[in-house]
């Protein structure tokens, strides 16, 4: 303990500010105490994430149930199997459809609500709370609720009946041609509040003089929004697109608790397929290979989006 305190006293605790990424110079090596402060976070992240991904990479080269003492090496065989597995391709297709639907609708509704609330409106804070409460709720609770609400004899169909639109009633989650769209609808319900709050924050940062100048020039509200406001929100659009894409790739609770990937695998996602292969079917090797594909997709999408965003800002 005393030696540790001594070394901490010698460590000058970095009193000169320097931007991250400045090249390490010779005097930096004296500040070894810094590593002690990093240790807990490093152990955690390296021990779980890096070791996990590394181990996962090794398991993905095996034909193994995760228990047997004699796993069989199959090289890249599991990846070949994945590329030839139609369920993998349809899962990727579902994720893409789900991502496009949810991102576009959430952005449009969130922006609309943020714009409308720049006008003084009654109950504005109540509306804000109603839209943000779903964001803080557990996806497990939201999914279970909608599973009941969207039953053929559930509340959504009851409301349609009451409005004289009973003909529009559907088996929302049991019809293979509708189930994926219904899942997108649930996701939109849960996450539009997130887009709304982000747009509201971004709108408050917009230079008011630009907007006033456009209004002086007689720009219509629609033209004002389209040509002046929307372009200034490009950072928020990019953020919502990235978080939406990664969110779609990560989607698990929602599917697991509503359709379980069905009916007839019409809502299978890569995540639910990985869970099934690993936990229900004991195909650790195949599950690991699918996990690596999920990870590579998440990384590639993030890098591509960040590059597009930087390019767009230039």
């Amino acid at each position: 303990m005393s030696t540790q305190t001594e070394s901490m006293k010698r460590g000058p605790a970095g009193l000169t500010p320097a931007p991250l990424g400045r090249h390490a110079s010779a005097h930096l090596s004296r500040h070894r105490v810094a590593y002690l402060y990093l240790l807990p976070a490093l152990i955690l992240v390296v021990g779980v994430i890096y070791a996990g991904v590394g181990y996962n990479g090794w398991v993905s080269t095996l034909d193994w149930n995760g228990i047997s003492p004699t796993p069989r090496s199959v090289g890249l065989g599991q990846y070949g199997k994945a590329l030839g597995d139609p369920i993998v391709w349809s899962a990727l297709w579902h994720t893409g459809v789900f991502a496009v639907l949810t991102i576009l609708v959430q952005m449009a509704l969130g922006l609309l609500m943020a714009l409308v609330l720049t006008v003084p409106v009654r109950f504005a804070n109540l509306y804000r709370v109603l839209m943000f409460v779903p964001v803080v709720m557990a996806p497990a609770a939201v999914s279970s609720a909608f599973r009941a609400i969207l039953q053929p004899d559930g509340q959504v169909n009851a409301v349609l009946d009451a409005l004289g639109l009973g003909g529009l009633g559907q088996a929302w989650l049991a019809d293979p041609s509708l189930a994926l769209i219904s899942l997108a609808g649930i996701n939109i319900w849960q996450w539009t509040g997130f887009s709304f709050i982000l747009y509201q924050a971004a709108l408050s940062q917009i230079d008011a003089s630009v907007v006033e100048a456009a209004q002086m020039d007689g720009a219509s509200p629609w033209r004002l929004v389209r040509s002046v406001v929307v372009p200034q929100l490009s950072g928020t659009h990019a953020t919502l697109a990235i978080t939406g894409l990664i969110g779609a790739l990560k989607t698990f609770d929602l599917v697991y608790l509503t359709t379980g990937g069905g009916p007839a695998r019409s809502t299978e996602f890569l995540t639910t397929y990985i869970y099934e292969q690993t936990v229900d079917r004991f195909n650790a090797g195949y599950g690991a290979a699918l996990s690596m594909i999920l990870l590579v997709l998440a990384m590639a999408l993030t890098i591509a989006q960040m590059a597009a965003y930087r390019f767009g800002r230039k």
Binding site: S29, L42, T271, L295, A298
Partner: peptide, 26 residues
Amino acid sequence: MQFRGKSLLFNAILVGLILPTLAIIV
């Protein structure tokens, strides 16, 4: 604080931002 490898270590931890937890299920 200033120390060797600061930027590298910081970025190494940030990479964890994009990890879907499900990708380390095995």
